[in-house]
Design a binder for these strands. Sequence first.
DNA 1: CTGAAAGCGCTAACAG
DNA 2: CTGTTAGCGCTTTCAG
Lengths: 365, 365
Amino acid sequence: MRGRTASPPANRRRLTLGGQTNEGRRAVSDQRGGSPTLEMVAALAGVSRATVSRVVNNSPKVSVRVVERVNEAIASLNYVPNRAARTLASRRTRTIALVMPESTAKLFSDPFLASVTQGIALHLADTDYTLTMLIASDDTPEKTQRYLLGGNVDGALVVSHHSGDHSLGEVSRTLPVVFGGRPLAAGGALTYYVDVDNYGGARAATEHLLGRGLRQHGTIAGPQDMPPGLDRLAGWRDALDAEGLDSTLVECGDFTPESGAAAMIRMLDRGRPLDALFVANDQMAAGVYSVLHERGLAIPANIAVVGFDDNFYGATATPPLTTVRQPSNEMGAKMAEVLVRVIEQRDVPRVTVLPTELVVRGSAG
Amino acid sequence: MRGRTASPPANRRRLTLGGQTNEGRRAVSDQRGGSPTLEMVAALAGVSRATVSRVVNNSPKVSVRVVERVNEAIASLNYVPNRAARTLASRRTRTIALVMPESTAKLFSDPFLASVTQGIALHLADTDYTLTMLIASDDTPEKTQRYLLGGNVDGALVVSHHSGDHSLGEVSRTLPVVFGGRPLAAGGALTYYVDVDNYGGARAATEHLLGRGLRQHGTIAGPQDMPPGLDRLAGWRDALDAEGLDSTLVECGDFTPESGAAAMIRMLDRGRPLDALFVANDQMAAGVYSVLHERGLAIPANIAVVGFDDNFYGATATPPLTTVRQPSNEMGAKMAEVLVRVIEQRDVPRVTVLPTELVVRGSAG
DNA sequence: CTGAAAGCGCTAACAG
DNA sequence: CTGTTAGCGCTTTCAG
């Protein structure tokens, strides 16, 4: 039915395909593992390539009978559409970049980040988007930017603790971008982001300590150039201020256990009374624990401690750490969901804040 | 210089492009952010598209002068080759899949895996390969297989704790695949893999314990259906057997802190004397610590403990954990390196084993 | 060493 | 609802 020699000019491209060249290609394909093409499906189903394409893309305007026939052909041939061809023709890559600043990648072992990433990957697995990991080298931001803007992806997800990279702020004016965590130098109301309620969590943690009658508070805060660091400190401060208590016993770390230990030592050396401590993340709390143990200070008898994150190390510490659980997985999933909506031009709020939850354990019963 | 009207048939495709249609497209491009095309570079440099392509692909047979001219054009136009087009034409995707079984993804917070992933990503960032993350759903292995074999990637990297997935073994006969960790049901000498010296590390750990004069050994082993679990147990056993000591005090966990705690309780309940314990990973060691503390058993005074992994939690535990450091980052990098070599058909050994190193700390001075 | 020509596999108007 | 027709942007023989 499609073997008839076409009448138009003889040097047209498709003609070659209809002739023996087709056989020639077949041989090559075979030895290469030869993925079946849309054209082969069309031939088997007895329809045009356009129709097969429509079926593959779930176009509503194809008769049920044909859809069925095509799907059978697809199944029997084990056909898989070629991504590159699809992208080239449609200008949609169906690819989303997971951008991670190099400095962040180095801290990848951070369970929180890993968990967010996992949430993203798991959510995307159910869509037909593919996730590509992009390490944004700190010293060649143009390379990243070029890649992102080079039509290689439909959108980008940015996870980082040093949130709010400038170069990416620019990118977000051209490409759909969703940030994980409030960007620092937010590009105004122009960026999309998903965050956890750092302020609320910190405040709840502190109020819990307050509820136990504790009055001498201190906090090991996170870096003050990172939104989570800022927001958690603010939550702690406001909870204390509301009670008219002192909120000046603050030492900052950088979210690593070592920095937590160092900050704790500095705080203790200030010699001020202390019976309640809020630590801005569980990793630093681990550092705090070791210092407190060394100094012979009992938790929570001498000092009650509350952390932030809820990774499993806190749960198995001695005593188990009271902490603020943040829905890291959900955060990743939400980021992916928001981005897909933006890409598909569907309606979606620019800011999404996920609730945190206080998990009470032995360190601040 | 290239403006002359072509002489062949008037209904050829390129002709349309040369005419006003070109202008038409330009308008469209401009409003879309219009990435410059190879054709534009060619025009600016006054050469053919083929030549530009050669330059872009570092073909050695282009005169220096032309290379220079083309590169200038590329720079001034800020040209970035279109991946999809490249892939379609060359049949090389320059994309590598990072395959992670869903069950593994759920445990992604495992610092070891995160670190391997990081090593992979960092290594690939220096090549022109792109990394795409693929979660292999446990219940639809065909989907994954189809994707991998559908010509979407040039090769795959498989990381998992349940190493040696069957479906992937098949894939590896058609697509270059490198496994992280010795595959369980190895497809014979046919698979490539990079592993750390689990056996050697476990043996060294045990010999260290032996060197301290300890004689009553026990081990919390990993799952016995996973190569690392098997290999570490074998190393422990052989070290003991070589000294003619008993090697039957074994309890297995599944690498989680909880399972480590449970296994420790079972072991203690067996009521056998014990003064040296080798735990197959640091996470389980965390569980072991909490149980030992509860029972009032001092580390290392009553029982010396050695773990395996060396994540930072072990370092900040009380007492700091003596453990076997495995080069997780390097493992990832090596996997990527091996895969790239396989893809590029360069010579590379099927098996690569990275050395482990004993880190002596307080838990087994 | 360089150019011309022919597609890679798919989508997207545009006609029926 | 379905087929026809042009390409998407790049690589790759094949001739010079």
